[in-house]
Lab assay of single mutants.
Amino acid sequence: MAAGGDHGSPDSYRSPLASRYASPEMCFVFSDRYKFRTWRQLWLWLAEAEQTLGLPITDEQIQEMKSNLENIDFKMAAEEEKRLRHDVMAHVHTFGHCCPKAAGIIHLGATSCYVGDNTDLIILRNALDLLLPKLARVISRLADFAKERASLPTLGFTHFQPAQLTTVGKRCCLWIQDLCMDLQNLKRVRDDLRFRGVKGTTGTQASFLQLFEGDDHKVEQLDKMVTEKAGFKRAFIITGQTYTRKVDIEVLSVLASLGASVHKICTDIRLLANLKEMEEPFEKQQIGSSAMPYKRNPMRSERCCSLARHLMTLVMDPLQTASVQWFERTLDDSANRRICLAEAFLTADTILNTLQNISEGLVVYPKVIERRIRQELPFMATENIIMAMVKAGGSRQDCHEKIRVLSQQAASVVKQEGGDNDLIERIQVDAYFSPIHSQLDHLLDPSSFTGRASQQVQRFLEEEVYPLLKPYESVMKVKAELCL
């Protein structure tokens, strides 16, 4: 049975990233139509530049190519590739079939990587351009969430054990800070992308030097003109047959890092959902379990974690691919890159769409948070109580021993009897502590235990987050809708 299948058929496997999760716009960027249309555009740009620099290419040939950029006979191309065992030459023939007058000058002087690699770089750039505003929107939604809850005390956790208090907004800023680093890295790697350009079979530009009869300047002009037509500021000066596969490492490393950030955020949300302090959106008709109707599973956060793990592992592909590119190139890269580049971007696209949807509907339960604080705060307040007693004339050592005994009794009630923490009640009825009984409410005010959390939130948002989001103001209103 021949390899390949009808990918629109229910009898043929289709990647869930495309069929179930990723956005239509990201799927289109990695589609065959987008790819092969870009090949034709690159052939047109090459012909236009070659004509401008004096090669015998007519206006009629150029116009014929322009008129057929979208006229792609995919069936013919597939048949040609089956016959020739070469995808680029299959599309040269297919393009030439609908451009008979231009057929002889299509791909003039070029090698397969002229269309293959340059198209990949265009796709990487455009895919990054799709991700950047999506990530900015996630940051914006979380920034709104953090600002609104900047002063809401909550129990902090280290080692997932109760620690000092923080605020809900401050905790959210930990998430935002990681995503801001990801946004900066995505922008950097996007701006650092260079075009492969017009380089020939081993990167020496020998074929173009021959076409222009040894004119170095025209060869350099050709490279520059096509690079500018493709919208790049610069091209690699040095290439082998391909652009260095280190570029793929750079791009997928940034995406993998984004995956790590999203995994951490969504894990926190899942843990908070278990504590009943916070939940992701839950639709009115949504079913959490087929057997347990009360369940409210954090399905979206779980999906993000599941896909983020996949995204983090994909960076190993370009690392290994770059390491086995012998001399000017081997074909070890080809099949692998067809999979890992598309999957990385479709996965990143999915987790950003999902995280935006989550961040637009996060639900906080202040009463649950308050109750958990009441359970733990008495123990945390013991040092403040000791200091207040010393100020009232008591002995630190005597007070410490009193607190120690009462704390152990209260802990026994919590752990052995399943009761509430009654340390404060014990202190309130103990005559030894009568000098500070009137101060206990103040000493137990949760806001006095959150330090500068709310001020940190305000400063972080104003100095770091809002300036970073400013270039994306025009796209901030787009909502994230999930079908599944």
Rank of each mutant, 00 (worst) to 15 (best):
D192T: 14
D6I: 07
G394N: 09
A344I: 06
Q439D: 14
D59V: 09
I105C: 11
E302T: 05
P318T: 07
V413G: 11
W45E: 10
K295S: 04
S306N: 02
S19P: 06
H437D: 04
R303F: 00
N421H: 05
N421G: 05
L42G: 02
D349V: 05
P467K: 07
M89H: 00
I403M: 14
M181T: 11
D32W: 07
R245A: 01
S151E: 10
E481H: 14
L311F: 03
L469E: 11
Q375N: 05
G156E: 00
L128I: 12
K35E: 07
F36E: 09
R83C: 10
I72M: 11
E280K: 03
A291W: 02
K147D: 11
R329G: 04
R296F: 07
Q41R: 13
C304E: 06
L377P: 03
S23D: 14
Y34D: 05
V254A: 12
M278T: 05
D32M: 14
A348R: 01
D120Y: 08
E81A: 00
A2N: 15
D6K: 14
T111R: 00
S140L: 15
V92P: 00
K264A: 07
F30K: 01
F160S: 06
R245Q: 08
N384G: 06
E60Y: 10
I339Q: 15
R40S: 00
G104M: 14
E370A: 11
S257E: 09
E64Y: 07
R234G: 11
E370Y: 11
T94A: 14
Q205W: 00
G4W: 15
P318H: 03
G96N: 06
P366L: 06
E280R: 04
E80A: 14
S434E: 11
S151P: 10
I237W: 08
Q416D: 15
A335V: 07
T204W: 00
N71C: 11
L124V: 14
E70M: 15
P24G: 10
E343D: 15
T201Y: 01
G8P: 14
V226E: 01
N126S: 13
L461S: 04
T158E: 01
I386L: 01
S67A: 11
L84S: 05
M89Y: 07
R296V: 12
R396K: 01
M89P: 02
Q205F: 00
I106H: 00
F379V: 05
Y114P: 01
K470W: 11
I106R: 02
Q161K: 00
I57H: 07
A431E: 14
R33W: 05
E360D: 13
V364L: 09
L193M: 14
I238Y: 00
L468V: 11
E425D: 12
S31P: 00
E70W: 10
V198Q: 01
E70T: 14
A143C: 12
T382R: 05
D144K: 15
K284R: 13
E48K: 03
G116F: 05
C399P: 03
G104H: 15
S253K: 02
P281T: 09
